[in-house]
């Protein structure tokens, strides 16, 4: 990272967010309030492509390592950005609490995240503020529950078919 600001010896920062290293890959940990502003800055600094946006449900694995000042919450939104010119990648991990599973949509920065955010909404039940069309994408629209949550019991859900006689 070229533009590290206010770095202390202990914790490198990027645009005011803790920056860590995971197997040689740069990871930034913004808060939900910093999320869109940070991404806007990254977009302007050359990260032209949002390669991936997904989520993780840490319900059964709460004790993961996070930088100081970041409180572990149940959900985490993971965004992978790519800088074409600099041939660089950066990853964002944002904590989303179970009590309020909403986060801002990136649609206005990268319209390509539209489908990825829908997938996260479908699989994890996390809502994206400002998303133009927040509906299920992979599961049928009348499906109950969000399958990739850790408390979604596998093998115990009767097969659901739309319009089938039961």
């Amino acid at each position: 990272m070229s533009d590290q600001e206010g770095a202390t010896e202990a914790q490198p920062m990027l645009h005011g967010c803790p920056l860590t290293d995971s197997h040689g890959q740069a990871v930034v940990h913004p808060s939900r309030a910093q999320y869109v502003a940070l991404l806007k800055k990254l977009l302007d600094s050359g990260y032209a492509m949002c390669s991936d946006l997904t989520a993780v449900d840490f319900l059964t694995h709460p004790g993961r390592s996070l930088p100081d000042g970041i409180v572990a919450e149940r959900f985490e939104i993971v965004v992978n950005l790519t800088a074409i010119a600099a041939r660089d990648r950066i990853r964002l991990r944002v904590q989303v609490p179970e009590s309020d599973t909403t986060i801002a949509s990136l649609f206005d920065l990268w319209p390509g995240t539209e489908a990825m955010e829908r997938e996260v909404f479908d699989m994890f039940g996390i809502s994206f503020d400002g998303h133009p069309d927040l509906t299920r994408i992979l599961m049928p629209e009348d499906w109950d529950g969000h399958p990739l949550r850790k408390d979604y019991e596998i093998g115990r859900i009767p097969v659901q078919f739309k319009g089938a006689h039961s």
Binding site: E98, T135, R136, D142, G145, H146, D151, Y152, I157
Partner: peptide
Amino acid sequence: TSGQNIFKTNEGAQ
């Protein structure tokens, strides 16, 4: 079955 976080959803048509 009802896990505590599995709630009825109907988000509208795709």
